[in-house]
Design a protein around this nucleic acid. Sequence first.
DNA 1: CCGATTTCAGCCTTGGGGCC
DNA 2: GGCCCCAAGGCTGAAATCGG
Length: 399
Amino acid sequence: MSRRKGCAYIWERKDTRVLWLCRYVNKKPVRVSTGLPDTKQNRLFLNRNAESEFWRIALEQGKVEPDQIPNNSSLSIIMQQDPAMPKLREYGEYTLNATLSGRSTKTQQDVKKKFNRICLYFGDETPINSITATMIAEWQTKLSQGKVSYQNGKPYSNKTIINYRSVLNTILSAAVDDGLIQRNPMESRIAKAPRIIKKIPTVYSLEEIRALLESCRHYAKNARNFQTEWAWKQMFYMLKLGFFTGLRSGELIALQWHDINFDQNYIHVQRRIRDGDEDLPKGYKKRFVDLLPQAKEVLKTQQLLTGLKSKWVWLTYQGNPYSSTDSLDEMFKKACRHAGVKVGKFYNMRHSFATLMIENGMSESWLIQNTGHVDISTTRDYYFGKIKPNLDAINKLVV
DNA sequence: CCGATTTCAGCCTTGGGGCC
DNA sequence: GGCCCCAAGGCTGAAATCGG
């Protein structure tokens, strides 16, 4: 480590386990205890921040006077002026590239985009150690009010703010680990993550599902051309299958005939389609889903439509597999409006499936196996709508 | 084991092309 | 002109993983 003249440096003291800093002030040595234990990380930190830490502690302990700080600069200026301190843009890019292996391509793109916006707000050239908890708190508030330049006045939800925080947090916690800063300002009380309130998922009852299916039939019957008729016919069966298997919509459109075992009554879920990309299902986990009689019936019928034509279970009217779930969602909403039920999403079939299965006495362990969750808390948190009590049983409780 | 964080995937919007 | 399919970007819900 360099002991530049007129700069603070780590002072070795054999009799203590904490690190000290020393600096010549008016030609006299001033020594302060940092209170930090002698660890590799603390040494790294103090080597990088000797000057600013020295002044901060020495002022706090009254060992120097404010007017002794060189160049009459304030403490905050000294902290920002350290030429060795990496800048936000440079260090952030380095960190995000270094940690890229854990993310998928799409996620990495998302992260980079968020990072660019973070730089736009905080400034490319902002030294890492000058981002304060207050600045972060202010940023979050502005995001929630839609007052940041790239938002066009659109307020961000708490969830979105948390996702943006996550990117900055990755960078700042790396900065702590690398010894650039002592603590992560995001962990400060005033810069805490906003709260999110968990919603009860939208769930359709059996009657509502029937009405939705009826709407699909209606649109297929009254179609003025082949493509519309075909699309709604597919929708009819997809909806039914989604409701009786609980598959994710991306998994549903990716089904191939060889995934289905009609003899042993299961579906091997091993694929997912998103934005035209084929990949393993979420969490990179394949699973087996029980083929309930109602689902089996749907697939037997669908087999007559596409079984000989293609390896894919579901086809567009052009004879290709669906490249995304977009049109499904659009048609689902249309069906909701026609059926006069609450307008939801195709994914709610999955929630409805889970709720119905629990109401009808299937075990939670069966359910997590079929939904492919790692533990039951996910299922409980996200999947159950309002579960109807079994009034028949309750009414028998007479005292 | 549970809440917080991080990552992945669905949803929403815009827009274009093709078909009937 | 209405309807469906497809693409792409950004927001946010779903769900795994982390960390205490």
